[in-house]
Amino acid sequence: MTALRAWLLPHRIVMIGLFAALVLWCAFALRWDWIPKYAPLALEGIWRTIWLLVVTTVLGFLLAIPLGLAQAVGPWYLATPARVFCTVIRGTPLLLQIWLLYYGLGSLFPQYPWIRESELWPYLRQAWPYAVLALTLSYAGYEGEVMRGAFASVARGQIEAAQAFGMPRFTMFRRIWLPQAIQTALPTLGGETVLQLKATPLVATIAIVEIYAVASRVRQDTFIVYEPLLLLAVVYLVIAGLLALGFRKLEARVPVKGH
């Protein structure tokens, strides 16, 4: 009720009215006649963007757990490589990483006959394995740092209690340590996942047809400048909004003291 009332303040009603007028003006004054022709391609592009986002965040998160653990409690010969990996990933632009993997590895592989003759070769000639690899490593690099903090912040008493009950180490990790670390990291993970969504259009530069590439093609084919970009921005806004909503639901599953 209060949420609804917050939207009905006088100045907000005026602003919503102005915004609606702007949307109507955009709908009628700008050119949208290209949409029916490109709609199937655009849907495919949106699907590919979401697929990339889901696959790379899941794989990247699985990789981030050992990275964070190694940095938080690991011996130095595990902690140092993990820290170097995170620093390098976070210190260089993702676009450069994508191009290094795609052009660099892509030009290196054909020189080795045993790679060319292997069963993987048909996949290695396509662009998407490099895109998935680059985005996964990037997410893992950023999340490794987040998980390091999260693992270190789990209260000692929790782990000591599990040890006192004679819980095996792996069970303790799975039942006590990891869930609590994920719970603390969830707000940051939500933000980082939106950042990952914003990173997906970079793979359009290595010829993967996701939604950004579809918009670029529309612009090239029809010479329309603004309309595809505006629609593209709206698509990303909607996906980012859904992500934020989903993470808020996840966070709300565990009640926090004092709220």
């Binding site: 969504l197 914003k198 997906t200 259009p201 950004y212 970009l229 990303y236 806004l237 980012a240």
Partner: peptide, 14 residues
């Protein structure tokens, strides 16, 4: 903060 920088760069540039 919700729209990719790449898209914003194009829009703002034009």
């Amino acid at each position: 903060r919700a729209v990719p920088e790449l898209v914003l760069i194009l829009i703002l540039y034009y």
